[in-house]
């Protein structure tokens, strides 16, 4: 099968790669671009740890055909930190002990960012709804919900 040329924006930077037909976005990001922040969990949309933003909207990169993002803008956890400064959500996750093993964290942070970008002051129920596609094995979700609410309330330093 011949390779397909593909261009898109990755965390604000233009990238150009060649993908096989049928390659999913998660594999393209991890294997061809080297961005290891979206994780492979279940590979079938059940766990949420591969979550990325496509034109600001939350998507499961394991279920997204790479070809479909041509010309679009992809945000991953790799682009969240601004230089040495953690994003307020990352700071809030650290302050609220919202990670233990950390495997769900990239997906949780992207789901939270997608929420706060469109709704800067969500209710607790809206936070729960926003991360309901993401599985966490360790924390019991409570610290994650609290971290997102804390970041939304600006109770953390940027």
């Amino acid at each position: 099968m011949s390779k397909i040329p593909l261009q898109f924006r990755h965390n604000g930077r233009d990238v150009a790669i060649f993908v096989d037909g049928g390659t999913n976005l998660l594999a393209a990001l991890r294997e061809l671009i080297g961005d290891m922040t979206p994780k492979f969990g279940c590979g079938q949309g059940g766990c949420g740890t591969c979550s990325v933003l496509i034109d600001g909207e939350l998507h499961l990169s394991c279920l997204t055909l790479a070809e479909t993002v041509a010309g679009r803008s992809i945000e991953t956890l790799d682009g969240m930190k601004q230089g040495p400064n953690l994003h307020p959500l990352q700071r809030a996750f650290a302050d609220n002990f919202a990670a233990q093993c950390g495997y769900c964290t990239p997906g949780m942070l992207m789901a939270a960012k997608a929420l706060l970008d469109r709704n800067p002051s969500p209710s607790r129920d809206e936070v729960i709804e926003a991360i309901s596609g993401n599985i966490c094995r360790c924390t019991g979700y409570e610290p994650i919900i609290n971290a997102i609410l804390a970041a939304a309330g600006g109770r953390v330093s940027a």
Binding site: C42, G45, I135, G140, Y141
Partner: peptide, 17 residues
């Protein structure tokens, strides 16, 4: 057989503790 079928409570199923 996988995460889709293996049932675990989600963030909406927790309670105050």
């Amino acid at each position: 057989r996988d995460f889709v079928e293996y049932l675990m409570p989600g963030p909406g199923d927790i309670c105050p503790h």
